[in-house]
């Protein structure tokens, strides 16, 4: 199946501006960076979490720890998939106990990934609070979950796919809608 690009949603500069805004919003809402920690969901979310941490450091001068989370083991669709994804690394080197966790993902869709991520984080400890930051919210929620920080709201049809391409993966950075 070949996918073709239908619309450009954000370019490199657009992504950067969105992240800058989210970083400010996070600091504003949390009244600084005290106890702040970021956890990115593999893979795109991890890159975005690292960038947000950089921006927060630039603004506030505080280094917030960053972790990465793979939710494969927490998925609810294992039995219906034809092959198992190889779980990627989960690396949370800090203690989540009492932290203000910013969970970061690239595309916010049905909410199932976030549900799995929440369960997974809880298995590492009891954070003070978990907030959700996403680069793109494309709608079509299947669970009662909402984002606290949104880079871009993007109404889509369920046939469409949103692709977030990041420089860390060695591609031209952009967010696009693709379709068969």
């Amino acid at each position: 199946m070949s996918m073709k690009e239908k619309a450009l949603i954000l370019d490199k500069a657009g992504i950067d501006r969105a992240l800058t805004r989210i970083a400010h919003e996070i600091l504003e809402k949390n009244k600084g960076a005290k106890d702040l920690a970021l956890i990115g969901i593999q893979r795109g979310g991890v890159h975005l979490a690292n960038r947000l941490a950089d921006k927060i450091k630039g603004i506030e001068g505080v280094t917030a720890p960053v972790g990465s989370l793979d939710i494969t083991m927490y998925r609810d669709d294992l039995a219906t998939r034809t092959s198992q994804p190889v779980p990627k690394t989960t690396e949370i080197t800090f203690d989540v106990q009492g932290k203000e966790i910013i969970l970061v993902d690239d595309v916010f869709f049905t909410g199932r990934t976030i549900r799995a991520a929440l369960n997974s984080i809880m298995d590492y400890g009891r954070p003070q609070r978990i907030q959700l930051a996403v680069l793109v919210d494309r709608g079509h929620r299947e669970l009662p979950i909402r984002a606290d920080f949104i880079g871009k709201n993007l109404p889509t049809s369920s046939q469409e796919q949103v692709e977030v391409m990041l420089a860390e993966d060695g591609v031209d950075e952009k967010v696009v809608i693709v379709e068969e």
């Binding site: 494969t72 083991m73 779980p87 989960t90 997974s120 298995d123 400890g125």
Partner: peptide, 14 residues
Amino acid sequence: SFKDVSERDIKKVP
């Protein structure tokens, strides 16, 4: 990946 699970406090995934 599963080895990491056994090293956590909560050694269980669903």
